[in-house]
Design a protein around this nucleic acid. Sequence first.
RNA 1: GGGCGCGUAGCUCAGCCGGUUAGAGCGCAUCACUCACAUUGAUGAGGUCGGGGGUUCGAGCCCCUCCGCGCCCACCA
Length: 890
Amino acid sequence: IYKMWEEGGYFRPSNDPNKPNFDPAKKPFVISIPPPNVTGELHIGHVMFVAMEDLMIRYHRMKGVPTLWVPGTDHAGIATQLQVEKDLLRTEEVTREELGREKFVERVWSWKEKYHSIITSQIRQIGASCDWERERFTLDEGLSKAVREAFVRLYEKGLIYRGPRLINWSPGLKTAVSDLEVEYSEEPGKLYYFKYMLSGSDPLTETGEYIPVATTRPETILADTAVAVHPEDERYKKFIGAKVVVPMLGRQIPVIADDYVTREFGTGALKITPGHDPNDYAVGQRHGLPVLSMLDREAKVTETGGPYAGLDRFACREKLWNDMKAAGLVIKEEQYTINVPRSQRGGEIVEPMISEQWFVKIEPLAKPALEAVRDGRIKIIPERFEKVYYNWLENIKDWCISRQLWWGHRIPVWYCDDCGKQTCTRTDPLACAHCGSKNIHQDPDVLDTWFSSGLWPFSTLGWPEETPDYKYFYPTTMMETAYDILFFWVARMIMDGLEFTGRVPFETVYLHGLVRTEEGQKMSKSKGTGVDPLPVMAEFGTDALRFTLLVGSTPGNDSSISLKKVEGNRNFANKIWNAGRFVISAINSLAPGSAQRTDDLTEWTLADSWIWARLETLVREVERLFQVYQYGEAGRQIYEFFWSDFADWYVEVAKLQMAAGGERSFNTAQTLARILDISLRLLHPITPFVTEELWGHLRGALLTSPLAELAKDWPEALIIASWPEPRPEETWQAAKVADFALVQDTVRSIRNLRAEKKVSPARRIPATIAGGGKTAVLKEQAGIIAALAGLDPSLLSILVSPPAKPENSIALVAGQVEIYIPLSGMIDLDAERARIGKELAETQVQIDRLEKLLGSDFANKAPQVVVQKERERLAAFKDTAGKLDSQLKG
RNA sequence: GGGCGCGUAGCUCAGCCGGUUAGAGCGCAUCACUCACAUUGAUGAGGUCGGGGGUUCGAGCCCCUCCGCGCCCACCA
């Protein structure tokens, strides 16, 4: 099977027009998604991705659409670096700095190989495959080229700039992280109140004038460059323009007025630290304040901090505060809940710091990206995420793209040591483009993971080259991912796609929900709450896990994985297998060379017609649901059909029909085979393994049977078989379905009675059935009714209406028929009267309800189809009520 | 502070963007291993769809409001 996929260009674009997957005349289905990340840690959430995409791919594949599933990795990811650093530290006690870039990168590649083998085996087990050889080629050469091209283009358009900006600094990782990578958590903290003394005032005297200020991060006092008050604040108005003294440092800074200050909060006066707070930075820009930095790359105090230089940020906080206490500058401390910014990767507290970084001007990219979704060129499923998308893009800030790491695409900018200017080119420059000096050095930073990932839909297809792959497969069709990555990745791919290719990168974004643990927790590596799918697959089977994930979820909604559910779906897989075994044994039991295939309706029994009609309805429904991405509902309907209709009812009837032998058994085996075949095709995208295996056996059995004709055109494997064609409903179908439903109702009500009266299942009982208008149908089905309801066929009489009510019988009403079961010694007249009376009352409630409904405006205003349906139901209830009434009297 | 989602049977969730008497799985109760399947079959109990109001011939679904959860974004010292 894998070989067929590969030869069919299942995963990679195939440039060979002779290969079956490459049909220039057909619009291909392309899905864009990376497999699990390179750190090799896999949890069930990853299975969700791959299973959902595999479903989509298989479905289109079976429909004859050329398909392509482009795998990628987060090859340049910070996660990779962290993982490797962790391993290095553990095994060799070497730090990033000690190793140096070159050796470090080499080491990462060696880890990457190791992880790939894990990932590959894991992906294979859930029904996919990856061509890592080509992948690696693409990553090493093709993608790097694309990233370079993208950067240079933006640079040349003036959309990339370098500047001092306040960024989120991660002291542990020693790199900038983007706003999106920062998470805030509410934690207990303190609000520190202290005195900003007016210049010349003495804190230790009564007359010392000061401005009270509150802060949550006292250590940043060392980098304060102003104190701000509201311009209208009566308390502090008089100080505006005056100078105050920075505690312990003695620097003089101005008191300024700014609307930004909230008079009601804290003391109403605000210390301004442009170097360590984004809002203060903005205030500082407005007032032309200097920017001081009191922390270095490792979050240790710089020389700005004077006597505190060299201290860790938290140690500094403590010492400074104690010193201030001693100096009489402290007012009070207050318990206060603060929002602490923490790094998404690692969890340490992030410091806002001023730093030279590279940025992308985002607005020119964001506008077209907004338009693309607004005008419907890109559709997001479920729709509500479009609002989230708009909201984010409308308020987006420039994107910090530089990272101070080794592992990643390096920023292709060289600085001239002589003239100081920048050179940014598509190939590595040997000299400065401005002065020709050969004293140039490359920027040490690498690009944010998402810079390269954003190019992914086209960079993997060969862009910027106009390769055949790119021309044929781009734009892609479907982007399938979890909703939590909408901003990180999806939005950036859209922006990049429009910017670099002028086209949307994909037409549809399908967002699945997050898979949570049984307790509803988010699966997370750092919290250790991830559920390893491999043991689950080992215990219950991959199909069971896939079915659980795909059918147990609705687009964009989270779902909890529970082993109970997986177990239930394992049972379903088992049911498929066993039903299949039955069908195959039925085929094998046919006498060789007996009869010919027939399409003559009259040769079919009611059950044959019924199951066929039900199946055709199912095919139509599944197709409709797949079109609107309702995979879960489609799966549920297939489950329902296969278990309840096919296995519980049709197979039971088929046993009787097989026993009849001759033509009947021949036709029955044929129906069993055809229903099973199509069911397996419908199920294949969801549970590929059991269906593939079983279908192979089915095909083998058919080909060596008198029914060989049936499987003559089937391909060698289900994965390349065709998808069932939905057909319009035929006129005979509704009547057959209704007739069989009557048989089912009759059987059920007898079974019900037997259970209630505790009649042994082994005991064959007599019955008289008054069939009314349906007598002919029931007579024809007498054998089935008798067998399924445990009746004695020789004591079963089916009449239009019995000449007299049978004596000593329990009377049942099932739809249009009345059933009399003589059960001597088991009849309690009072109890029977009560039972029938209760049924009659329930029926009467329905009659009253419907009469009222039909007597209201409903009859005039509702669509006539709906009204007609209600009228028919009313008639049926009246019929039932009449029968119950006469039974009560009898 | 802004936005989004959820609340349906004891539990976990469907209910496909207004149309039968609201469904499934698990769990529970009773019965049955001659049967392709005990990873099974048969039968049954169980819900005033979070509360209130409104629109409509008709509301689990649409509108308003309240209550209880959860998530995302922004980050006022």
